[in-house]
Design a protein around this nucleic acid. Structure first.
Lengths: 233, 233
DNA sequence: CAGTGGTCTAGACCACGAG
DNA sequence: TCGTGGTCTAGACCACTGC
């Protein structure tokens, strides 16, 4: 039998978890106060607080001042996705990375993005089309708009050596962003670039990042066939 | 000008964040010790610790005992996805939810899953095909295997009233799982079910959950065209 | 070995929000 | 209003790991 150290916050978390799993505390039911639990475990309230805060972060319990802590009725699955820069992703699975800039020009922001990506009216943005390779096979196709107000230095860069992806991470840190995942069919152009039959379902990701109120970049990545985004929960 | 409260851990986190964004602390550079920062901010080390721990959780700094805290060189994007049960997802966007069980039988586990989903040899698993609707329009198609050793009560349930999705959340809590996302083409069967032209790219999710060593369920969800999984970072 | 983060404690005050 | 969680403090000991 495994003994759990009930003097560590992780140990206490395990015990609480087991009580929830074993239905000793029913979904929706209020569990004892921090103070009572601290007494039960013979530890400081801070320690119980840490354990409960962790359970709340993962969605298993719901905490409210005055109302106490309740076991979540429908614990949502929370999964943390780690999205590395593509070079690191490729290299981490043992591939050799290369990228190729297919297009690069200044242009007005397409109307489609006016709502989500508010740059100053009339300002051009830097547009890039890039193909990423793993072991010389297409890995992902990227279309990107860069707001030159947020990253003026990008105007003079070709992004042939360092990908825009990587350069922006280092030179235009964002404060927040929107991220979405979806599926697209390979059209004729994509099909040639990604070495996929026309019509093949491809996994895609779209991302907008801001530094405060200033939009930095909008990027759409479309991955070669077979790509899976994985995580553990 | 906005003043930041440097006596709260969130306030301290903001200040540290700004120093990283403003390159006062360069990527890869070691930042001051907790004790020094605590002195600078005139607060307890615990408070600085909380702020730094939070930055480390989000991947912006890397902390090591003895080696100190460094600004991450390639801060990975971490995104937390919240995956609710489908009924709640549908209802949260104002739809009325319904589901329909298309198939339900006991069968041996398909060979394809033998590696990932280790049930006792020769034991049958419960197989379910379900279609989820939002406002009477197809929302997602589900294929699910349930390990009856982990959830024996499932053997006697039709899952016509409560979906397997929801029942399992309430009755077979998992301790951990694998989750992946990918894209598939609608085949003829899917196309009819999801009201999508054959070949349409569809967003799909696959999930296996365990309770300790015991596999609980394997589920593949394929969403109707246009589905996006969104999150903020 | 010794510096650094990780954690625990006992106590305190505060903010929120249910009743 | 007042119970409950949220947070802060000052101090302590410990665990890891680079040197």
């Amino acid at each position: 039998m495994t003994l759990t150290d009930t003097n560590s916050w992780t140990g206490i978390r395990e015990v609480l978890l087991r009580r929830i799993h074993d239905r000793i505390w029913q979904p929706g039911e209020q569990i004892p106060h921090e103070a009572d639990l601290a007494e039960e475990f013979g530890c400081a309230r801070t320690t119980v607080n840490r354990a409960l805060r962790d359970l709340a972060d993962s969605g298993l319990v719901v905490r409210k001042r005055k109302a106490g802590t309740r076991v979540a009725v429908n614990p949502p699955q929370r999964a943390t996705l780690t999205i590395p820069i593509i070079r690191e992703e490729v290299e981490s699975i043992g591939g050799s990375y290369r990228h190729s800039v297919l297009e690069r020009d200044l242009r007005p922001l397409p109307a489609m993005l006016h709502g989500a990506f508010q740059v100053s009216l009339g300002e051009d943005v830097l547009f890039l089309k890039t193909l990423h390779f793993s072991n010389e096979r297409p890995y992902a196709f990227e279309e990107r708009y860069i707001n030159l107000e947020a990253a003026p230095a990008a105007r003079d860069l070709s992004f042939k050596e360092v990908s825009a992806n990587e350069w922006l991470v280092h030179n235009a840190p964002y404060s927040h962003g929107d991220l979405s995942f979806f599926a697209v069919n390979a059209d004729d152009k994509l099909s040639g670039k990604l070495d996929a039959a026309t019509g093949t379902a491809l996994f895609a990701m779209e991302r907008i990042t801001w530094a405060g109120d200033l939009p930095i970049t909008h990027v759409r990545l479309i991955f070669a066939p077979g790509y899976r985004m994985r995580t553990e929960i």
